[in-house]
Design a protein around this nucleic acid. Structure first.
Length: 1034
RNA sequence: GGGCCAGUAGCUUAGCUUGGUGGAGCAUCCGGCUGAUAACCGGAAGGUCCCCGGUUCAAAUCCGGGUUGGCCCA
């Protein structure tokens, strides 16, 4: 950075400022050095969540990175070593889909025709399509991250670590094959990802039917169930009831029917049924019933009543038909009760051969026929049209079927307790996520469906022989050991598919299953796989486990936050992170999600180029807590720039302007305790701020910290300290007053630069560098975060200052009420309700209010005068018809005189020959301020200004008007701050008198060497209250 | 359809835990200030605290229902 001692332009524009700082950072290699800063000290263990670089970053990525960076920078300044390894997530379906799109193909067959090898080659390239965008953005926003040596989930070393962890899980017996219910498009012949399914939900109205299942052991008794998918009845193996609800056995239309009490009341009218028995749902458990269809012979016992919590009383009968082949809940409960599994449907959505009447028919088309058959058999109790949400294929609009397919699972449900215990050890910000969204999810945690029938991913290292023996390979060495060969170019498909070896148990050939794994497992392994643990860096891994801090969007709750916890719980038995900030989404200005189709996506570069990175960072961190949705607006960013950063730049500019003129060298470090009150006040506030911010930062409260800093900088430093003390910097001569002012301002700016560093690193750097400190470091970011000095915190002084501010405020309001300009000096102010201020604070009131003398008085009655007016309630009854007239007379005179008279002797009044004597009791009295005074009051505090002007005050007022005009002219002429001038002027009437009597004052204020009164008048014409004024300066 | 979060001035928001006359910033209007000047100071105007119901002497705040938006699921 250039050492510009005068260049104001360089501090007025945030983008220029940041570019200057960026250049400095590049020159001095600051970012790389920060990555090494404090090496050898205790670790603050951060983990970067890996993005996929196959799309450019958006505004929300800046948000996440700002949150991460601010905490990391703070901890780094606190003395911790903060490793910040970058990471890239490479595998997964989104990558494959992007490549498919590029190649113009859209299903697996076409991929295999194209060839797996060239296909994954395309994927590998596609992953880093936008890596330059990411690097550029990362640098531009000042995010300290090691991009030179990132972890990359597709690298062999990373995959090898993942394989190791899978083997650990397998050894614990938690890796098993089973069925998974997947949404399946029968036309496309493929399962869909949840993301795809979510796009295709539509509201449809379909027939729902009530069916009677005959109880096996009792004649004429039926369980009444309800379904919207009649075709699944062929796969029915159980009926589920809610164990905690009451069920009724009722006589209805000559048959005994069992269903939920609440539903009986909802569906049947009184008198349509007769209650025979009231039973708890749990008591129905085990009740056997006759299957509706017998196309399939179950391989184990089924067709009895089970209990399940998912049974609700909202619709249906409170008895749910269970078909494990076609529903997630059904499937889970099927495992729990070891129910038979009946798959009546081909994957193309048609019934199998066994279903003789409807074989080959599309299941949805068979619904009508199934209903008809049930009706014929007398088992149908009714049909209702039922509107509900149902998923359709987003590509071809075919209704999706839920279909059980084979999958490899991690049995997370067996680790439920461990997961919940580990969650207890994590601090969540906001805290409600822990028990809420995340905790609820863990309570019902399902087995992790790990396998994907795809190509571009970490291959599942599971080998199996024809006899079903399994083996998991956990390292490259193990491949060599088992095959005797080491010729696999990389641990990806299709290469690993060729690995074969004899089964240890039966000697038959073991082949790998086809699957790759869920890419969430990749990123969830980052906390160890990034080190290539356990193959390398064991020491480093141990130092960084568990991580202290992660931060990502709330959408990661069931994504990365879960996968990190799940894997560390399964492999290490402990959580892998201690603190986590979940930030909300960044929405557009109207609260809508940004999406390309809506065209409401804000390009981050737009704001980065207009208001700069610090403005964006400051806006995102300070406007509200991270977990509140951000309605991103360019105006908001601009306001952050103007109101906070602009003020900071302005204060710096002010400091530079005068310190340059005076050649001030900062940090003389005069004893703070002997400085003027207002300096000690500012330092007290500053130390309080440092204490507050550091405490908040340690508790991950970024927003509270930013807001506290902003308040100090804008209100206390700029709008109060600097404004009130401007004159101390103006003087030409060196003085104690001036030196201490510089010291206080410089110390404050220095501390602020450090406090602000985690939030607005560029401005912090600029302020730090521009202060002119001699023994500064290469960057503010190498400084220690400010601590506080308890000795400099002065509560009494702070209270006095609050009172003082209030007095000034009231004084100004009093002036306003009588339209007396502040430029007009007044003789005195009377203050009630405040302890007398010392000279230091008193002088502030005098100059702020432009008043000569300060008087503290508790009894203000002498400034008030009594007025009187007749009380209509009293004189009405007394004077009757004369009352109106009397009132008129009494109000026509001077009400103060009236009050005096009445108070003294009462008053006599004659109307139409009647004379009345009115006393004090007949009047109402008010206290009014005398004409000479102006009042401002609030609560217990009253401030009274003396408006009386003697000649001196009038002349001084004129002089100030003149000074102000001359200053404006100096400015318009672009004169240097310290340029000397000569003045020629003349004015109407009293103006020249004023100028003459305050000649020295005017010349001193305007840096004039000479001043004369011109006749006839010449120069620029000004109109002031006292008349016309002409001024010429040179 | 379920779970969670949010709805306060034209805009951005504080207050809600623990009930007691709703505060601020931006924008607007009036006045002031003026060598920090795209700033600042005083004042004004601006509110159905999303809607309905309940609890209570008293509800922005607590409870229930609804509605709108968001997230995660289905």
């Amino acid at each position: 950075m250039k050492e510009d001692r005068t260049g104001q332009s360089q501090v007025s524009d945030s983008v220029a400022l940041e570019e200057e700082v960026l250049a400095r950072w590049r020159d001095l290699d600051i970012i790389r050095r920060l990555l090494q800063h404090n090496k050898g000290n205790e670790y603050f263990r951060f983990l970067e969540g890996p993005p996929t670089a196959n799309a450019p970053p958006g505004v929300h990525h800046i948000f996440a990175r700002t949150i991460k960076d601010a905490i990391d920078r703070h901890r780094n300044m606190k003395g911790y070593f903060v490793p910040r390894m970058g990471g890239w997530d490479c595998h997964g379906l989104p990558v494959e889909l992007a490549v498919e799109k590029k190649l113009g193909i859209e299903n697996k067959e076409q991929i295999e025709d194209y060839g797996i090898e060239p296909f994954i080659e395309q994927c590998r390239e596609s992953v880093f399509t936008y890596i330059d965008h990411w690097s550029k953005m990362t640098e531009r926003i000042g995010y300290v991250l090691d991009l030179d040596d990132p972890y990359i989930t597709m690298k062999d070393t990373y995959i090898e670590s993942v394989w190791w962890s899978l083997k650990e899980i397998w050894k614990k017996g938690l890796l098993e094959e089973g069925h998974q219910i997947v949404p399946f498009c029968p036309r496309c012949g493929t399962s869909l990802s949840s993301h795809e399914v979510a796009q295709g939900y539509k509201e449809v109205t379909e027939p729902s039917i009530f069916i009677k299942f005959k109880v096996a052991t009792q004649e004429n008794t039926y369980l009444l169930a309800w379904t919207t998918t009649p075709w699944t009845l062929l796969s029915n193996v159980a009926l589920a009831v809610n164990p905690d609800e009451f069920y009724l056995r009722v006589m209805h239309k000559g048959q005994e029917v069992i269903f939920a009490e609440k539903r009986v009341k909802a569906l049947l009218k009184d008198g349509e049924y007769e209650i025979l028995q009231r039973i708890m749902g749990s008591d129905l458990e085990g009740l056997k019933y006759e299957p509706l269809f017998d196309f399939f012979t179950p391989d184990r016992p089924g067709h009895f009543v089970i209990t399940a919590n998912f049974v609700t009383m909202d619709d249906g009968t409170g008895i749910v038909h269970v078909a494990p082949a076609f529903g997630e809940d059904d499937y889970q409960v099927g495992i729990l009760y070891d129910l038979p599994f009946i798959q009546a449907v081909h994957s193309n959505g048609t019934f199998k051969e066994e279903v003789t009447p409807w074989k080959g028919m599309f299941v949805k088309d068979a619904d009508k026929l199934i209903i008809k058959e049930l009706e014929d058999r007398g088992l149908l109790e009714g049909i209702h049209m039922y509107p509900h949400q149902y998923p359709f294929c987003w590509r071809c609009d075919t209704p999706l079927l839920y279909y059980a397919r084979k999958s490899v699972f991690i049995r997370m449900s067996r680790l439920r307790k461990e997961l919940m215990d580990n969650n207890e050890k994590i601090n969540w910000y906001p805290s409600n996520i822990k028990k809420g969204r995340f905790g609820n999810f863990l309570e019902e945690v399902k087995d992790w469906n790990l396998s994907r029938e795809r190509y571009w991913g970490t291959p599942l290292p599971l080998w199996r022989c024809p006899d079903g023996h399994e083996h998991v390979i956990g390292s490259r060495d193990e491949i060599k050991e088992l095959t005797g060969k080491d010729d696999i170019p990389e641990l990806h498909r299709p290469y690993v598919d060729t690995i074969e070896f004899p089964c240890k148990e039966c000697g038959k050939t073991m082949k790998r299953v086809d699957y790759v794994i869920d890419c969430w497992y990749d990123s969830g392994s980052a906390f160890f796989a990034s080190h290539h643990y356990p193959f390398e860096n064991e020491e480093e891994f141990k130092k960084q486990f568990p991580r202290d801090y992660i931060a990502e969007g709330i959408d990661q709750t069931r994504g990365w936050f879960y996968s990190l916890l799940a894997i560390s719980t399964a492999v290490f038995g402990r959580p892998s992170y201690k603190n986590v900030i979940c930030h909300a989404l960044v929405l557009d200005g109207e609260g809508k999600k940004m999406s390309k189709s809506k065209g409401n996506v804000i390009d981050p570069w737009e704001v980065l180029n207009s208001d700069g990175a610090d403005a964006v960072r400051w806006y995102l961190l300070s406007s509200s807590q991270p977990w509140k949705p951000k309605l991103f607006s360019k105006d908001g960013v601009n306001e952050a720039n103007r109101s906070f950063l602009g003020t900071l730049r302005n204060v710096l500019g002010f400091y530079r302007t005068y310190s340059d003129l005076d050649g001030y060298k900062p940090l003389n470090r005069s004893d703070p305790k002997v400085r003027p009150d207002i300096d000690r006040w500012l330092l007290s506030k500053l130390n309080l701020l440092s204490r507050d911010v550091d405490e908040r930062m340690m508790n991950f409260d970024l927003t509270g910290s930013a807001q506290a800093i902003k308040y100090f900088v804008v209100e206390e430093l700029s709008n109060w300290y600097v404004r009130v003390n401007r004159r101390r910097f103006w003087g030409t001569e060196d003085s104690e007053e001036k030196r201490t002012a510089y010291d206080t301002l410089a110390e404050s700016l220095l501390t602020i630069s450090k406090l602000v560093a985690p939030f607005a690193p560029f401005h912090a750097e600029k302020v730090y560098m521009a202060l002119g400190i001699e023994d500064k470091k290469d960057s503010v970011h190498f400084e220690s975060y400010p601590s506080f000095d308890q000795d400099l915190i002065d509560e009494t002084l702070q209270k006095d200052m609050e009172l003082l501010k209030q007095v000034v405020e009231l004084g100004r309001a009093a002036r306003g009420s009588k339209n007396v300009k502040i430029r007009q000096p007044l003789s005195k102010v009377v203050i009630k309700g405040a302890e007398p201020f010392g000279e230091g604070l008193g002088s502030i009131i005098r100059s702020e209010l432009n008043i000569k003398e300060l008087i503290f008085e508790e009894n203000l009655s002498k400034y008030f005068e009594m007025t009187a007016e007749p009380d209509p309630k009293k004189i009405g009854p007394k004077l009757r018809s004369h009352a109106g007239k009397a009132r008129e007379i009494l109000l026509s005179g001077d009400s103060k005189e009236l009050a005096k008279k009445v108070k003294k002797d009462g008053i006599r009044i004659e109307i139409d020959g009647h004379e009345y004597h009115l006393t004090e009791e007949d009047f109402r009295f008010h206290e009014v301020l005398g004409e000479r005074w102006a009042l401002g009051e609030e609560g217990d505090i009253e401030v009274i200004l003396d408006l009386h002007l003697d000649d001196d005050l009038v002349n001084e007022g004129i002089a100030r008007e003149v000074v102000r005009r001359i200053q404006t002219m100096r400015k318009d002429m672009d004169l240097a701050y310290d340029a000397r001038i000569s003045i020629k002027l003349s004015g109407d009437g009293p103006i020249n008198d004023g100028v003459r009597s305050f000649r020295d004052y005017i010349m001193h204020e305007t840096l004039a060497d000479s001043m004369e009164i011109l006749d006839p008048p010449d120069g620029k014409e000004w109109k002031i209250d006292q008349g016309i004024l002409h001024i010429q300066i040179e």
